[in-house]
Amino acid sequence: MTDLEHGAIELSWIDMTIAAGLVLVAGAVSIALRLGLERRLAIASLRTVVQLLLVGFILRQVFAIDSAWLLMGLLLAMTIAASFAAVGRSSRTFSGATFQAFLTLLLTGMLTTFTVTGAIVGIEPWYRPQYVIPLLGMVLGNSLTGISLSLDHLLERLSAGRQQVEMELTHGATRWEAARAPLAEAVRRGMIPVINSMMVVGIVALPGMMTGQILEGADPMKAVMYQIVVMFMIAAATSLGCMLIGLLACRYLFNSRHQLRSELIRQRA
């Protein structure tokens, strides 16, 4: 208790070894029930340790350097990785989809992150990586899921559901009028995970960031306020992202003669 009042309790390597013992319990269950998951569990555990240590090491360097340019480079790298992940999860794609996802994530991610760090939290200087990097990470992580669901649905409606769109075009709809229903449904699909998590936040589970702050010794009310800001930021970024990727995709997949070019959509193997 006393320790909590003074901040987080430092974890030693011995503590980490005990935690690793918890994974061994999962491994033992797998062996006992012949689930055959031991190997994958071991690899996953190892990857967790290596990836997080690497991130910790990189973040420590970045925070120490405290350079705006380096930060921007890192944000760009995070956004590029997120755009590949967003398009990679979709079962259909088209040439240029990754670039459109990159543009979308760059615009929506930066807009929402810097609105929070600049206008709400008011960090000084504006590029303090301790704030910007974790916040952008949360935004990207959530909006890439939304974008991927959204794009997947949109491309399905424009390829498998081509007749429906062409029916609208034959009755005099413009490309945007014909794309409206698939686009709206795609945005709705992309928003479902965020809305679901907003509906149950705090009831089913405490969000990771908030839990982290509380473990760090922060006042729960302060942690809650941060979490509310983060949830709103994620909701804004995801909805804007789903809409923007949909608009960009439609702009590419319909030509100026208001024809649907569904032949540009490729089914992923």
Binding site: M167, T170, G172, T174, R257, H258
Partner: peptide
């Protein structure tokens, strides 16, 4: 304008949509 043209030269598909 293509939308106006299509409204005036209107295709009805064989498969009802």
């Amino acid at each position: 304008g293509w939308p106006a043209y299509r409204r005036r030269v209107l295709l009805v598909h064989q498969q009802p949509v």
